[in-house]
Simulated scan of single mutants.
Amino acid sequence: MTNATVELLAKDLNHQGGVYCPSPLADMTLWNSHPKVYLDVARSGQAKCPYCGTVYKLKEGEHFHGH
């Protein structure tokens, strides 16, 4: 487990308000990590990967305005 925290800008989220882990935003590559998992960051402003424990959160002051 990495237990890292990755601060995101709203533009880092996909159109649904989420990110995938492992992520290049967290200096991870798919070949040396866990299965790809979708994390819904927009709902609460942060999400924790169930595999590695990395927390992805919106930077303070950032707001996601999805469609």
Rank of each mutant, 00 (worst) to 15 (best):
A47Y: 12
L13S: 03
G61I: 01
G61R: 10
L13Y: 06
H63P: 00
V19K: 03
P50M: 00
C52E: 08
L9N: 09
E7F: 11
H34R: 11
Q16N: 11
H67Q: 10
C52K: 08
T29P: 00
P35T: 02
A42I: 01
G61C: 01
G17L: 01
F64K: 02
L9F: 09
G66L: 05
G18L: 01
L9H: 08
N32M: 05
C21E: 02
G61V: 01
T2S: 14
H67F: 08
T29D: 15
T5V: 15
P22R: 07
A42W: 00
P35G: 05
G45K: 10
P50E: 05
G66H: 14
T54N: 12
T54G: 09
N14G: 06
H34Y: 10
S23V: 06
H34V: 09
T54K: 02
V19W: 06
V19N: 04
W31P: 00
K36C: 08
L58C: 09
W31E: 14
H67A: 11
G66T: 05
L9E: 14
H63K: 15
N3P: 00
G53P: 04
Y51K: 11
M28E: 15
V37Q: 12
T2F: 07
Y38K: 04
D40V: 03
L25M: 09
K36Q: 15
